[in-house]
Amino acid sequence: MFKRILLPTDGSELSLRAVDIGIQLAKQLGAEVFAFHAMEPFETVPYFTEMMIFPEDAYEREVNERAQYYLEEIKQRADAAKVPWNGRHEYAHRPYEAIMNIAHEQKCDLIVMGSHGRKGIDKLLLGSQTNKLLLSTDIPVLVCQ
């Protein structure tokens, strides 16, 4: 049925639960997984560059280290389950679009991801990458809460 499952992660416990579900599903189906982490790009206002407390190179180093940590966590879980895996991270202004693009690029036929299940004003104000993805993609999405 599914041959390649995309596992987007933000490193949260919720996304790791979705990762575990995706890995177990892949194991049962004989599928492989592709882990993905979208990182917010560093943006500055040109006039305040000298006043920045956290310089761009330190920011990039930090988010790249964090992304590597998240992907390593998925690698360990996939290896423990003996599920083939691959993964990568990249910068993205809109993580849901990056998830959709990587799913197509990697020929994934299922996306398994977490959702905080926000409702009402929280959903309106905070938005949901999962919800935006659901409204944008033609690939099936398994949402875990």
Rank of each mutant, 00 (worst) to 15 (best):
P95I: 09
K123G: 12
D122W: 03
Q24M: 12
V63D: 10
S128E: 11
L134C: 12
Y70E: 11
Y91T: 03
L6I: 04
R94T: 14
Q24C: 12
Y69T: 07
E40H: 08
N101Q: 15
H93M: 06
P46F: 06
G127A: 12
A35E: 01
R61S: 10
P140Q: 13
W85C: 01
N101V: 08
H104M: 14
L126W: 05
L125S: 07
M1V: 06
V19D: 09
G30Y: 01
N86W: 09
V143F: 03
P41K: 04
Q24E: 15
L126I: 14
H93P: 05
D122A: 15
F36P: 02
E56W: 05
Q129A: 09
V45Q: 05
H89R: 08
P41F: 12
H93A: 09
Q76T: 05
V112H: 03
H104L: 07
E73I: 05
R118W: 12
L14H: 02
E60L: 11
Q76H: 11
D109H: 02
P140H: 02
C144V: 15
G127D: 05
T130Y: 09
Q76Y: 09
P8K: 09
V45A: 12
A26K: 00
E13A: 13
M52E: 14
L133F: 03
E43F: 09
E56R: 10
V112W: 05
E50Y: 06
T130K: 12
A78V: 04
G120M: 14
Q28M: 13
A38I: 11
D79C: 03
H116C: 08
I21L: 11
L71H: 00
K75D: 01
L133S: 06
K132C: 07
V83D: 00
I99N: 09
E90T: 14
G120K: 15
I23F: 11
V112A: 08
Q106Y: 01
A81M: 05
A98G: 03
R4E: 04
E72G: 12
I111E: 04
G22T: 11
V143S: 08
C108V: 02
A26H: 01
P140I: 03
K75F: 02
G120I: 13
R118G: 13
N131V: 09
E97R: 07
D10G: 11
L126K: 06
M100R: 11
L14N: 07
A92G: 04
L133V: 05
A80T: 10
C108Y: 00
E50A: 10
L14Q: 04
V83T: 00
Q106K: 08
H89Y: 10
R118C: 14
T49F: 08
A98Y: 01
Q28D: 14
W85S: 02
V141K: 06
H104Y: 15
A78L: 09
H89L: 03
H116G: 15
N131Y: 07
P8C: 10
L134F: 04
V83Q: 00
A67C: 06
V33A: 00
I5P: 00
K82C: 11
F34N: 03
L124I: 14
D138P: 02
G30T: 01
N131M: 14
F34K: 02
R17H: 12
G87D: 00
A58K: 13
